[in-house]
Design a protein around this nucleic acid. Structure first.
Length: 468
RNA sequence: GGUGGGGUGGCCGAGAGGCGAGGCAACGGCCUGCAAAGCCGUGUACGCGGGUUCGAAUCCCGUCCCCACCUCCA
């Protein structure tokens, strides 16, 4: 069974054919730690989390590298406004990202390199480019080093931005040969903090944005690796420039380029000017992490995902349905069966990570499992339960995953509450046995008012808080 | 202007020439003391206009609209 992924460069579904059989190396552009994580960052990280989980499930040894850009114009810009040193600001934001990722059950990457930890690799790579005639130090004494786009005929192959149809990049008016040339190294400016510069053969300065990914991908994954991922908005110029740098320096670089779709909010692009940004904290305050995760996985990773208040409500219902089935099957005494993913699920995932179709298989399996429980066919119910557990594991939405309760402090209050609720349930049962339904309903209403729902089942009454 | 991606039922969201993915919501039924849950059933969906075909949401032509990137962005 082979996995196919949509490759941006060839604009086609391509078979994942690992450089090293049995292993797969993935490089994903992580965040520039300038401000708090938002829904788009989470969606992106989640896309590659699902990818790595599926590849690992398929028996591949996955090496996932997701970088942190912790030195950059925007960080230098944001830090003073936050009243911090740039490095303190970057680190604080990085910790916010880590917390949000953890909350959503996004598995830790194999390694998470920081740009500032790889200045040496970047300088070495820039040196290779200068030597090969693909880069040049500026002649204005600025200490800048530019990539010479004209020296690399393949420039633009990733996004077909050939010719001169596009607008000049950054560094307008600087001493570069062509407006299309981009910065590999930025000489230190007088007003910039000394702590934000490193010595180099071209003078003190700091790296340009794109060079870090080329340098770190090569260091951890080798000069040729399997998948390079990131948000759709990074295709140009970021990924185009990475590709140009690495290939012109003699590295084959990524075999497949994967780009995840962006998130809109109520149909609009999220932007600071519109003030409609949805931050990780907003989401996690509005719904359980597993629900947020489900909501962000519900659309195919390459589609736009529109977020609205309703999407979390819907996801909550869907997740609750999964949870109820698992609980029901266990309560019914369904015998354990191996956790095997159904063939239709595997086929959907193999086909460019078709999570929406995979979810359809999951829900089908749940319906069939419920039918089996209703019919008393415990063997079949157990098999459905095993399949559901396997699928839910791959998608990272297993309700039983300890990750969801990792951050929850349990001081015993849940058990204390349980004891009280059980007493009230017993009271209600006695009323029901006496056919005093008014009294029975009063108990149920009082509990409901406190946010506790009761459900009568074949063997006893279950309770839950807000449907959890 | 250049490059890429879209317009699917009340909503979300798959599919990409031929049995109406799936979820949510709604309605009817079974079950229940009543609910809830679960199950069963109910939808003349594919921007618009032409065309090809035995058959088109899917292909072709035309047309309208939306979005992203080309400047920092997941």
């Amino acid at each position: 069974m082979t996995v196919r992924l949509y490759d941006t460069r060839s604009q086609a579904l391509r078979e994942l054919d690992p450089v090293v059989p049995g292993r797969v190396g993935i490089y994903v552009c992580g965040p520039t730690v300038q401000s708090s994580p938002h829904i788009g960052h989470l969606r992106s990280a989640l896309s590659y989390d699902v990818m790595r989980r599926w590849l690992a499930h398929s028996g591949l040894a996955v090496t996932l590298i997701r970088n942190v850009t912790d030195i950059d114009d925007k960080i230098l810009d944001a830090a003073p406004k936050a009243g911090s040193e740039w490095w303190a600001h970057a680190y604080r934001v990085e910790l916010e990202f880590a917390a949000a990722y953890r909350a959503l059950g996004i598995q830790e990457p194999t390694y998470e390199p920081r740009a500032t930890g790889h200045i040496g690799e970047m300088i070495a790579l820039i040196g290779r480019l200068v030597e090969a005639g693909h880069a040049y130090p500026a002649e204005d004494g600025s200490g800048d080093v530019w990539f010479d786009v004209a020296s690399w005929p393949d420039y633009g192959v990733l996004t077909r931005q050939t010719g001169d149809d596009f607008v000049a990049g950054d560094g307008e008016g600087r001493a570069k040969r062509s407006p299309r040339d981009f910065a590999l190294w930025k000489g230190r400016k007088a007003e910039e903090p000394e702590s934000a510069s490193w010595p180099s053969p071209w003078g003190a300065g700091r790296p340009g944005w794109h060079i870090e990914c080329s340098a770190m991908a090569e260091r951890y994954l080798g000069s040729e690796f399997d998948v390079h991922g990131g948000g759709l908005d990074l295709r140009f110029p970021h990924h185009e420039n990475e590709l140009a740098q690495s290939t012109s320096a003699g590295s084959p670089f990524a075999r497949l380029w994967v780009h995840n779709g962006l998130v809109t909010v109520a149909g609009q692009k999220m932007s600071k000017s519109l003030g409609n940004s949805v931050f990780a904290a907003d989401l996690l305050g509005a719904a359980r992490p597993v629900v947020v995760r489900y909501a962000l996985e519900a659309a195919h990773y390459r589609s736009d995902l529109d977020h609205s208040a309703g999407s979390l409500v819907e996801a909550e219902e869907a997740v609750a349905r999964i949870e109820r089935f698992v609980e029901r099957a266990v309560d019914a005494g369904a015998p354990p069966a191996p956790a095997i993913v159904p063939p239709a699920f595997a086929a959907a995932m193999d086909d460019d990570l078709g999570v929406p179709q995979a979810l359809a298989v999951l829900h089908d399996t749940i319906r069939r499992g419920n039918q089996a429980i209703d019919a008393g066919e415990l063997q079949a119910a157990g098999e459905a339960l095993g399949a559901v557990r396997a699928m839910v594991g791959v998608l990272g939405i297993d309700p039983a995953d300890p990750a969801w309760s990792a951050g929850v402090q349990d001081d015993g209050s849940r058990e204390a509450l349980g004891a009280l609720v059980e007493r009230l349930i017993e009271e209600r049962q006695e009323a029901r046995r006496a056919r005093d339904f008014a009294a029975a309903d009063r108990v149920r209403d009082e509990l409901a008012a406190a946010g506790i729902a009761l459900t009568d089942t074949g063997d006893g009454t279950r309770w839950s808080i807000d449907g959890r």
